[in-house]
Design a protein around this nucleic acid. Structure first.
Length: 422
RNA sequence: GGUGGGGUGGCCGAGUGGCUAAUGGCAGCAGACUGUAAAUCUGCCGCGCUUUGCGCUACGUAGGUUCGAAUCCUACCCCCACCA
């Protein structure tokens, strides 16, 4: 029988784990937690690795706890950070937590009998905490020498580290202890930069309670191209459809590098490894068809946005990238597109004689008219699928498809729809 | 508080009076090639215009010297290192 640790390891989730975790898991499911920053009102795909870690924990019978850093959010973790965090109001944090929980519900079961997922906010216990109590109950258990050996501190000794940031690991250790004490939470997971903070927590639980707690860290995800995973042209790829449209979301996964796709399937889908193996076999046989990317994009998009939206997104993708002749497309096709790509409405009068460069800026495909002009010079823009060569090109009624639509395109991946109202 | 070093375009980093809208690298955008890939090659990469050119804004901030300043002078702000 395999345990959570075996499963996570097979999927590449385990960068490091504390000794004894395997033995502990062999005796039964655990309660475990991951900390999240409530700095935004949505998760982005970069947050998905720990979310999937919690989901697997729950699937193994364990109880996942989502810890929201409402208390720690105001100080700042020095691990891998260069700048201080913004301070958020309590109302803002509550709002963000509510939105994020709704997204988590696609991955975690908050109603499961016996091991329902829980959300905790460390503001609840950190805010009332008194400094003297903290120094007595937590500070006493750590030597300066121990703390200075942590990578998060060591790497900052040259450039300088504030006392607040230096103390961060103790606060995080206190969180772990608190969850252990109150809910018998025995495992903390996180990114590999959290290793030092997590082991400080297991240390505190060991010294104060004489009990063994465990830690597990995920590897840092990078792309084969050498970049940070989870970024697109528009910045972070968010789960919130208002921040990243489902179409962009689907395209993000579909455009995954061949070298990354197998790893991404293991990380971000619940497909059994045997099935991933089969998909990869297809992929190797005919890379041009990209069955692996398609499967990845479908699985993740369906989970985050639902099957119905996925269908619409696939349809829109076929229109924009397939051989479909736009002139043959009906009005309903454009209605689908309007929901998936940036859409701007103009009046008929405005459209008549509207300079293309102005239109491109207006729909957001170009930042400035100069940029639009350069792009046109380089044959980078198309109107209704036809590349534009003339820098002084103007739009008019003759460009309207189905009487109302003009499809503008930058390069091959960026589109915008202009709707001319009657 | 003292001493020294520094603040240049998204980032890194050249530039010490006119040839500088500012070398180079990274990131980004477009084109070719492709599989809506990767790699490679090419072009672009402050804003605007009636675009082989012209105008405006810009080298921490504010003044000054000069025909002319990112480059020199003054004050101020900020950062870093070492010392206290």
């Amino acid at each position: 029988m395999t345990t959570l640790l075996d499963d996570l390891r097979a999927r590449g989730f385990v960068q490091d784990a504390t000794p004894g975790l395997a033995e502990r898991l062999a005796t039964g499911p655990v309660t475990g937690y991951v900390g999240f920053d409530p700095t935004a009102d949505s998760l982005h795909v970069g947050n998905l690795v720990p979310v999937m870690g919690l989901a697997w924990l729950q699937r193994s019978g364990g109880t996942p706890i989502v810890l929201v850093g409402g208390g720690t959010g105001m100080v700042g973790d020095p691990s891998g950070k260069r700048t201080e965090r913004p301070v958020l109001s309590l109302e803002q944090i509550d709002h963000n937590v509510g939105r994020i929980q709704r997204q988590l519900e696609q991955f975690l079961d908050f109603a499961a009998a016996g091991n329902a997922a829980r959300v905790r906010n460390n503001a609840d216990w950190l805010r009332p905490l008194r400094l003297m109590d903290f120094l007595r109950d937590v500070g006493k258990h750590f030597t300066l020498n121990y703390m200075m050996q942590k990578e998060s501190v060591k790497s900052r000794m040259e450039s300088g580290i504030s006392f607040t940031e230096f103390s961060y690991m103790l606060v995080q250790a206190y969180d772990f202890w608190h969850l252990w004490r109150g809910e018998r939470c025995e495992l903390q997971m996180g990114g590999s930069d959290q290793w030092g903070n997590i082991t400080a927590g297991t240390e505190l639980i060991s010294r104060r309670e004489g009990a063994q707690a465990h830690g597990l860290v995920f590897p840092l995800l990078t792309t084969a191209g050498g970049g940070k995973f989870g970024k697109s042209e528009a910045g972070n790829v968010w789960l919130d459809p208002d921040k990243t449209s489902p179409y962009q979301f689907y395209q993000f996964w579909l455009n995954s590098d061949d070298r990354d796709v197998e790893r991404l399937l293991k990380f971000f889908t619940f497909l059994p490894l045997a099935e991933i193996g089969a998909v990869m076999a297809e992929q190797v046989a005919d890379p041009g068809k990209r069955p692996a990317q398609r499967r990845l994009a479908e699985e993740v998009t369906a989970r985050v946005h639902g099957a119905a939206i996925l269908r619409g997104v696939i349809q829109a993708s076929q229109i924009l990238f397939g051989r479909l002749d736009l002139a043959q497309a009906g009005a309903e096709v454009f209605q689908v597109l309007a929901g998936e790509i940036p859409t701007t409405r103009v009046s008929r009068e405005e459209l008549e004689g509207l300079a293309l460069v102005d239109a491109l800026v207006r729909v957001g495909l170009a930042q400035s008219k100069g940029e639009a002009r350069r792009g046109v010079d380089q044959r980078g823009f198309s109107v209704n699928g036809a590349p534009v060569a003339e820098g002084d090109r103007r739009l008019g009624a003759g460009d309207l498809l189905v009487g109302s639509y003009v499809l503008l395109q930058k390069g091959r991946k960026a589109f915008a729809l202009l709707i001319a109202d009657r």
